[in-house]
Design a protein around this nucleic acid. Sequence first.
DNA 1: CACCTCCTATTGATCGTTAAAGTAAACGAT
DNA 2: ATCGTTTACTTTAACGATCAATAGGAGGTG
Lengths: 348, 348
Amino acid sequence: MGGDTGSAVTMKTLAERLGVSVTTISNAYSKPDRLSADLREQILAEAKAIGYCGPSAAGRALRSGRTDVCGFLFGGQIAEAFADPYTVAFLAGLSETVERFGASVLLLRAPADGEESEAQLLQRAAIDAIVTCSASSDHPGTEVLAARGVRVVGAQDSESGDWVTINDTKAGRLVGKHLARLGHRRIVVVVPGDTPDDGVAELPADGSACSRFAAERIRGLREKLPDASFTVVSAGWRPKQAGRLAAAHALDQQDRPTAIVAISDALALGVLDAARERGLVPGRDISIVGFDDIPDAGFVGLTTVRQPITDKGRLAGRLAMDPDYPQRRITLPIELVVRSSTGPAPRM
Amino acid sequence: MGGDTGSAVTMKTLAERLGVSVTTISNAYSKPDRLSADLREQILAEAKAIGYCGPSAAGRALRSGRTDVCGFLFGGQIAEAFADPYTVAFLAGLSETVERFGASVLLLRAPADGEESEAQLLQRAAIDAIVTCSASSDHPGTEVLAARGVRVVGAQDSESGDWVTINDTKAGRLVGKHLARLGHRRIVVVVPGDTPDDGVAELPADGSACSRFAAERIRGLREKLPDASFTVVSAGWRPKQAGRLAAAHALDQQDRPTAIVAISDALALGVLDAARERGLVPGRDISIVGFDDIPDAGFVGLTTVRQPITDKGRLAGRLAMDPDYPQRRITLPIELVVRSSTGPAPRM
DNA sequence: CACCTCCTATTGATCGTTAAAGTAAACGAT
DNA sequence: ATCGTTTACTTTAACGATCAATAGGAGGTG
């Protein structure tokens, strides 16, 4: 009943049946104040009767140039985004705001260099704006988008464009100061990153091979620990597993570090696992620190640097959806949260 | 350099500059084998030079009818979806498959009855298919979508359409049998649901006021515990908080239950909190069971019924993106996972 | 009664792309 | 020389909606 399933029902059909113009039908949906309430109701009733279900997104988008969609660009497979509590919290904030603006979020994957097919996915996306996360916002793809008129908002600072971020160097300093006070001098830093086959890679200790946010955290860290020894290791991109592998490697050395700094809480959870597997008590035998303060961090007693992740998402959404929002570059506050995973460096 | 920022660059611009037809440009992108490799390269080079970034999504969608977007319909604010580990795991699987098909996921909110503006968001969405989750798949909105030619896949069974699901009644029976064996006779079931102002609502013990999946779990549960007393309570939709509130209410009664069954693990985490706050040891003083086996369940020792959540998402994506996939109604296996949160009913 | 304004609905053009059908030349087989 | 086939591209005609400009009628004013 209702709905001519065979042929598509368009505004034209409706217009002909009611003896009004197509524009009037359009107005009934998009500009209710441009026609009498009476006629509007009549139109909506008839629409329901013959199974017309509102303006088609494609036609609307083509003509008006608006899609009411906000892209979310992630630097990796989207499935990985869901494995990282930081990203999930960010997305929660982002979608909350985007929804408030009457729009939806489209999940997009940033193409790696040379992935032409993926690049097309991004370029073809029908979006009004895009928020980049864990993808450098000066990613080649975003330039193309910007040229196309898509607003680009980064979840990290960059030379051009709008962004919401935290001061990563300062975050590093907070951790550095904390560890310095506790007397730590042998430190391993765990970062996400590509690895050779054996699973663990040692990177330059100045962070030059890391993504920028990691490099800045490392810089701040070293600033406050001028005479400590640093080793930077990575063991893949899946945070928990990478943290465990990297920590396992570090802890099985003869000259075990007294503190392990994971560049994100998600990594730190893996580090904690590795420590526990070896019978080491975090905060006594080894100190472990993370960044971000994801929900699980409190649960497992992880010392970390809190940033308002969900607010970051909310603000990014705001910048993306509201071109008139005055402040276009926002740095959010952070704070050190000391829990049980850190303590004085043990004598060895 | 490159890119006339003033006016939009379209296929027409490119065609005129190169002296070929617009169709040829289109083919250069969509059907590479329809023109000589030479010309194609020439076109792509010129495109890059003048800043043309591929076919516009809107034009393409309008003409071809394809959007390469798969909707995800959630029965609540999208931000809430991210607060629930079950949904996050499902989304991870879904996006993995959708991505493999060269498409993206669009997050959509199911409009509550009478929310006209939200309904338009759903109806206007430019999508090829949609997967519904925590929203009855016979939701009025989905009928409209189906009529429009959008493939609808449910993450729960329904009379019409395709779906991926588990046998919820059987899941309930697994828990019922387990609790019966342990001697439990006084049971409180916690479900998500609207509440009056005081925060906790008592619902009919037959589950008739719950969503269908909850009702079926309750049915299975009661089947195996024919002479136990049942109370069904709800305390809102935010899982952890609702679980805590509902459990607090139940535990503060004179006649405390010996077992609390949370209809989802997310709720159960809140129930565990409430128990711990009262100094009750789960598995000794009180038994607590959940459903789904989210990652944290193993972490906190929660007895639960495992279902392959991520696979469910993967399969839903498959059904959504591949109309030729032969099996259109899939029931996934489940199993009881006994951990430390359940034990023999204490004598009281 | 003529004049002006407000409100509603209409007309015609256009958004950027692709499907379908058509043309022209080149090639191989008969 | 004829025919069918292939290759490489062009022409034509939508796809479904919205925008800008405009016409017609109701109502108020001088």
